[in-house]
Structures are given as structure tokens and as C-alpha cells.
Design a protein around this nucleic acid. Structure first.
Lengths: 237, 237
DNA sequence: CGCGAACTTGACTGTAGTCAACCTGCGTGG
DNA sequence: CCACGCAGGTTGACTACAGTCAAGTTCGCG
């Protein structure tokens, strides 16, 4: 449990300061988090379904998904976490399990114990506020997922998901763009509440607006995809 | 903008202290919130779709729903707020609109300006933490809605919703129970992502486990309904 | 070269949506 | 006090989007 290499924790500070003003002292306090790097192979469970979170962790590289499962065994992803996200940050104030967490590709995280988060939040109110704000962004994204899954048809759902992940991956909305999304069609289905077969059919139908191949998303025309996904990015502000 | 009658704001304090320890001074500070009572008739919009929140408000009596709408005009509720809930509490740290808010029945709320929330959160870290925790409970509920809507069939979805609202209404899980839920079948559909016609069919099919009539839910056998809804209440802890 | 995971395709099924008509009960006003 | 209007609920017939099942194909990797 050493102080984290600051270059990694810096990603989290960057994420926080995008939306919250933090003094240098506050930023340094976050950078000084005790943390332990852990690496996982692809397709590994980080937290089993039903386990209470034992710490938060920053995604350094790779990608993490949060999922729930119904009695019938079908899976629903409720969040995707890209590098820079502090997964289970909420557990600093509410240590209730919210489902399982798994990796999609080789992934490295920095585990940060709850105590450290709670201590810095108690000492620096601005940091606590930044944490709270960060959690609320995740909640806003989740709300869109609920709308997406509940009220849009299959093609629109997938298009919306690709748009959201594009913006969250840091792509600017230029005419054409591309980004890495290390998922299988089955994963996409478990995020959009579709069977993998239907994901496949929809991807073919969307081939004019998007191509998804080998974990890489190509968007030849952003406007076209945004229209297909009824995408309105304001919720990601 | 007078100090709120303490008996109303007390409901919010009660909600907070259920999960967070607050000193008497902290509780008093919350009770002393400047607030303005506002009443709405049934089926009124409190916040229009797309408006940024201008304040938070405590539901004193009645019921409030948060909804989003797709391009096609179909509506998806993403939250129901019962008396005691502070709606848009999150907007104290993130003033981004998350959809519309409307009433289902005659409803009275106490409007609390962001400033007041931000000031007390800055002064009392424990209160800020309690606010954050409260928001995270809402997020946990939302996550279950996403799973519900994404991966359960129509009957199960409705049964799950009835179970959740029973617990949140303060009903204990005794064999038989009943509670008020001032919704129409169309509202249920917009929460569970179903057409009102299909809601009607499902209610008939569920008639052994539940009866929903005139805004009142009767549960003759809790175990039966919980099984039908695959309901696991731990996320509400 | 051979295996397995991921993807693809086709045929068929089924749950839920759509459309249309009708019923019921309540509140209003003549 | 009854007549009307209307919102909400009910029912049936038909449709369609997405699920299921089953059989390949492709491709990367040992």
C-alpha cells in the first residue's frame, strides 16, 4: 500500500478538476492517496455479484463493467468505466453492493481503501463535493441507460451507446472519428438489453453509420450516427 | 422565503438520519432551511423537460415523478419521489437538467434554493456526506430500474415495481399489506417501459399476487409477489 | 494444422405493441 | 336528479420487433 505513482492518480485528479475547482493542496492530497496497483486479465470478475465493496479503485488502463443479473441468469450492464474513473467511489459513503464488476480486456486498477477517501473528504470539503459531483455524473449516465433500454428500439439503443462511449472516450464530435471499445457483441447486448444475435443484425443494419469490428468503433459520419441514436450529449456535461 | 415549518422539514431530517448520524446542531441547521411551500394540482409539470433545475424541493405530501422522453414522444419515468424525499438534491453540486418532473396527485413541496444547500454542506461536512449518501440511495434505486426494464419480462417488472414502492412507502414485509400509489396504468407503463394495454393485461395475470385499483395497491401475500418480481430488497438498505 | 471463441445466417416463435372499439365511473352542469 | 362528457380502464384481433434454436463460418492463436 504505497503512495500511488502520481502519473496514474493524476488521471483521477484530471477527471475531478474538469468539473470541480480544487486547490493545489487538495489535488496533492488526492495524488497522495495510499493505493495498491492490481492487474486483471480480460474477462475477470473484480467484484463478485452480491459482494459488498471492500474498496474503491481507479481504472488506470483497460475497461471495467458493472452488471446485475436476473433470476434467469441474463445479465444487464449498468455502467462502463473507462480509465480515469474511480469505480465504487460511492461506497465511501454507502458500502452496499450494487452488482458485480468485471474486466473486458487486460486492466490495471489502483485500489484505494474507503478510509483514505473518507479521511480526505472529511478534511477537504471541496474534495468531498468533487467526489459527490463525480458520482452524480455517473448517475446521470445511468439515467440515460434506463431511458435507452426502456424506450428506444434496438438500433437506436446501440447507436446511442456508441455515441455516448465516443464522447466519454474523449472523441470530439467531428464528422468522422474512431475509438477503441473492447467489447464483444454479446457485451453490447448485455448493455443494451438485446440478444447477441439481434445485436449482430442491428450492426449490419447500422453499417452506414457505424462499423464495429474487433473492439474498435469507426464512425464515418457523426451526425448520421447521432441522428440514428437520438443522441443529445448535454447530460454528459 | 420563510424558515420552513419544522414539522415538514423534519421528514427530510428523518430520512437523512436513517442512514447518517447528525448532531443536534446539524439537524437544527437543516430544519432552519429557508424554504417556500408550493402546491401543485395533480398532473402538473413542476420542471419542464430540458429546464435546468433552479432549486431543490422537499416533497411534503403527494408524489412526484422524474421522466425523460424519446424523440418519438414516449415517456420513461426514471424515479418516483415520495414524501420526505429531496428532489433534485443533486443539483446542489450539478445543475444539469435530468428530465422533467411532474405530480401524480395534489402535491405540496418546499422549495429550497441551491445556495442554502451548498452553504450548509460547506459548513457541516457530516451534512454534506448525508446529502451525498442520500443521492447514492437514489442512484441504487435507479440502477434496479435499469435492470428491471432491461432484463425482466412485463409481469416481473410490474411486480418488482410494486414491491419496491411497498418498501419505500414504509410497509413492512408482512404476509399481507397495502399502500397508496396514486398512478394510472399508463403511468405504470411509463415506469416499467410497457404500453398501458399490456400493463392492463399483466395486472389481470398478476391478480393472485396483487390488486391495483384506484391508486391503491393491495398485496394479499408478500412472499408470492416478491417471488413474482424477483425482488431482493437489499439495494434499498 | 486444429481448436475454440466470436460472429453470421436462416427459420421459426413469442412477447409485447398497435389499432380499434367499447365499458365504467365520476364530476359537472342543465 | 339525470344527462353528458371524459379520463381511465378493458377487451379482442392483428402485427412486428426481438428472442430462440440450430447450423455454419471466420479468424486468431497455440
Amino acid at each position: 500500500m504505497n503512495p500511488a505513482p502520481s502519473n496514474h492518480m493524476q488521471r483521477f485528479v484530471d477527471r475531478l478538476t474538469e468539473r470541480s475547482a480544487l486547490s493545489q493542496e487538495e489535488q496533492d492530497a488526492v495524488l497522495a492517496f495510499p493505493s495498491r496497483p492490481v492487474s486483471y486479465a480480460r474477462r475477470r470478475d473484480i467484484v463478485e455479484l452480491g459482494d459488498a465493496p471492500s474498496s474503491a479503485f481507479l481504472v488506470v488502463s483497460g475497461m471495467v463493467g458493472r452488471f446485475a443479473q436476473t433470476a434467469g441468469g441474463s445479465r444487464q450492464y449498468t455502467a462502463f468505466y473507462l480509465p480515469g474513473s474511480m469505480v465504487d467511489l460511492h461506497s465511501a459513503v454507502r458500502a452496499v453492493g450494487l452488482g458485480g464488476l468485471n474486466t473486458f480486456c487486460d486492466t490495471t486498477v489502483l485500489r484505494v481503501p474507503h478510509d483514505a477517501l473518507r479521511r480526505i473528504a472529511a478534511r477537504f470539503p471541496s474534495v468531498a463535493e468533487a467526489f459527490w459531483r463525480d458520482c452524480m455524473l455517473d448517475a446521470a449516465v445511468l439515467m440515460q441507460w434506463a431511458v435507452n433500454v426502456g424506450r428506444r428500439n434496438a438500433q437506436t439503443r446501440l447507436a446511442h451507446l456508441f455515441c455516448e462511449m465516443a464522447i466519454r472516450s474523449g472523441e470530439d464530435r467531428t464528422a468522422s472519428t474512431s475509438y477503441a471499445l473492447p467489447l464483444t457483441q454479446e457485451h453490447l447486448g448485455d448493455a443494451a438489453a438485446l440478444t447477441p444475435i439481434h445485436v449482430n443484425r442491428c450492426l449490419r443494419a447500422l453499417s452506414g453509420s457505424i462499423s464495429f469490428k474487433g473492439g474498435s468503433v469507426e464512425i464515418p459520419n457523426w451526425e448520421s450516427l447521432a441522428r440514428a441514436g437520438e443522441f443529445e450529449p448535454s447530460y454528459l456535461a
